[in-house]
Amino acid sequence: MSTYEEKLSILSEMIAFARVDHTLKQSEYEFLLKVAHNLGIDKLTFEGLLQQKSPKVPLKTQAERIVQFHRLLLLMNVDQEQHKKEINTLYNIGLKMGLPPVAIGQVLEVMHNYPDNVVPPNVLIDIFKAHYN
């Protein structure tokens, strides 16, 4: 898995994304706290990241980038709301990670076919696989 610094960077990026609409809803906070726990980051450190960003550490593998994109997608939909700014920001984050633009667009389109816009991991992986073959 990732180093501790990479994990802090992952979480910091997610916090920044959650605040793209200038607010951090309770559902987003709880989701981020769960991700922190899953990454092995304690609550005190998590709370610190809410105050100060961690340095950006690029994810090394394509698989790590796809997982992070999926986390961000889940975060965007956790509050049951989507705003154009969030969708555009997620698209641009995916581009900066080096993910194929067509795959990103396809994921953002098919998410509406699933309950709560939660794209199953296998569907997400299949979409990205199709664009790498």
Rank of each mutant, 00 (worst) to 15 (best):
S2C: 08
K129D: 10
S9Q: 10
M97H: 12
G105Y: 01
K34C: 07
P120D: 02
L8K: 11
M14W: 03
H22Y: 15
L32K: 02
I10T: 00
E30K: 14
K25P: 04
V118E: 15
F17Y: 13
Y114A: 09
L59T: 00
R19S: 05
S27T: 09
S54T: 05
G40N: 08
D21W: 02
Y29F: 12
R71Q: 12
L72P: 02
G48H: 11
T3Y: 12
K43I: 08
Y4C: 11
T23F: 04
E6N: 07
G98S: 01
A130D: 00
Q68W: 05
F128E: 00
L44K: 13
E109Q: 05
N92S: 13
K34L: 14
V78R: 09
L108C: 08
V110A: 00
L11R: 09
Q82K: 13
A18Y: 01
D126F: 02
Q80N: 06
I41A: 01
L72H: 13
M14S: 05
I125P: 01
M76W: 05
N38E: 14
Y132A: 08
L95E: 15
K85S: 05
Y29D: 06
T45R: 14
I104V: 04
F128M: 07
A36W: 03
V118A: 14
Y91I: 10
H83N: 13
V35Q: 08
E6D: 09
K96M: 09
E86T: 06
M111E: 15
Y4V: 12
E5C: 01
V20R: 14
Y4G: 09
I66G: 08
K85T: 01
L95S: 11
N92Y: 15
G98K: 02
F69W: 02
T3M: 13
V78Y: 08
L50G: 04
N77D: 14
L99P: 00
I66H: 13
E13H: 08
G48T: 07
M1G: 13
L90I: 06
H37C: 10
M1F: 11
D42F: 07
D21S: 01
L32V: 02
Y114E: 14
K60Q: 14
L32R: 05
K53F: 03
I66A: 12
N113R: 14
L33T: 10
N88M: 11
E47A: 07
D21Q: 07
I104F: 01
P115R: 12
M1C: 08
L108S: 09
Y29P: 03
M97C: 04
M97T: 01
R71V: 02
K25L: 09
V78H: 03
N38I: 10
M111L: 12
L74R: 09
S27W: 05
P101E: 14
L24F: 07
L50A: 04
H131E: 10
S54C: 02
E6P: 03
Y114R: 13
V119L: 10
L74W: 02
A16R: 15
A103N: 00
I10K: 03
G98T: 01
Q68S: 04
L8T: 07
L33P: 03
L11A: 04
L59I: 03
M14Q: 06
K43H: 07
K56V: 15
Q82F: 09
N133W: 12
I127F: 00
Y29I: 03
P55M: 09
L99A: 03
K53A: 07
V20C: 15
T23G: 02
G105F: 04
K56A: 15
N88W: 08
N117T: 12
